[in-house]
Design a protein around this nucleic acid. Structure first.
Lengths: 130, 130
DNA sequence: CTTGACCCTAGAGTATGCTCTAGAGTGTAG
DNA sequence: CTACACTCTAGAGCATACTCTAGGGTCAAG
C-alpha cells in the first residue's frame, strides 16, 4: 500500500468542508489529536483526519454536542460502531433529551397559538395572564 | 388612591422571583426603564415593575427572546394586548420558528433511533455512514 | 529576490442570558 | 460607633461552537 502524501490544514479543511480555524479549535478541545509537523512548523495530517471531521459533522447532525462527540471518538476513536455501552447509553440519553426538548417547544407553540386565537376577540389580557 | 411606598431592587426581585443582577441587566438591555433614585443612590421602583418582570418571565415561557420581549414592551409597554400588528406578527413568526426547530429535533431523534436499532446487528457502520 | 497564498499562536469577539467579583457606599438596629 | 444587610458600578465569567484579529513565519512560482 502506497503511503499517502501528508495533507496541510487547508487541504484537510477543504476536503471536509470545515475551516482551518475550526480544525485548530477541535484539536484544542481534544476531538482531534495533535498532528505531526513539517520542518516549517506546519501541521501534517493523513486522510483519516478528513474522515474524522466528516464523522464529527454527521454526529452534530444527530444533535450531539462536541463534548459528547469527543467521548465517542476517544472511546473508539472511529466512533463508527458500538465500542462499548458508552455510545449506546449516550445515544439513548440524547433521544430522551431531544424528546424532552420537543415537548417543551410544543408547549410553547401551543401557548402561543392559544394566545393568538384569543386575540380574535379582545380577551388577550386574560389569556396571556392565565 | 394611596401612593404606594417605593420598592428597592431587592424587594422587587423577591416579589418577582428574579435576581437583582437580572433586573439591572434588563435595565441595561432596555427592557426596563431606568428608575428614580433615592438620596443614597438606590433605585426606587413601583409595583408595576414587578408586573413587568412577571410578564417577561411569562413571555420567556412562550419561547420569546429578550430582544423580542423588549419589542413588545416598548410597543405597548404592557405587552398585554395586541397593540399593533407587531405582536401578532412576532407571535406568528415565533410559531413558525418553533415548528421548524421541532422538525429539526424530530429529524435528529429519528436518525438516532435508526442507528440504535441498527446496532442490534453489526451494521452500525453502514447506518451511520448513510 | 519578490509576491502571494498559506501557515502559525494567543487571545479576543460573537450570540444569548444570565451570574459573579472587586471594591466601595448606604441604611438601620443595637 | 459597630455590624450586618443591602445597595452601587464596571467588567469579567460561564456555557457552546465557532469566527476573527494581530503580528509574524513558510513555501513555491515567477
Amino acid at each position: 500500500m502506497k503511503k499517502l502524501k501528508p495533507l496541510q490544514i487547508g487541504a484537510v479543511a477543504k476536503q471536509s468542508q470545515t475551516s482551518v480555524h475550526t480544525i485548530r479549535y477541535y484539536e484544542k478541545m481534544g476531538l482531534l489529536k495533535t498532528p505531526a509537523r513539517g520542518e516549517g512548523g506546519f501541521r501534517l495530517y493523513s486522510s483519516d483526519t478528513v474522515e474524522k471531521l466528516i464523522f464529527i459533522k454527521k454526529a452534530q447532525g444527530f444533535g450531539l454536542t462536541l463534548k459528547e462527540i469527543k467521548k465517542i471518538m476517544v472511546c473508539g476513536n472511529q466512533g463508527l460502531e458500538p465500542c462499548c455501552d458508552l455510545t449506546t447509553n449516550l445515544f439513548t440519553q440524547k433521544i430522551d433529551e431531544l424528546e424532552d426538548r420537543i415537548q417543551e417547544l410544543e408547549g410553547m407553540k401551543g401557548r402561543l397559538k392559544s394566545v393568538l386565537s384569543g386575540w380574535v376577540k379582545p380577551k388577550s389580557k386574560k389569556d396571556l395572564a392565565s
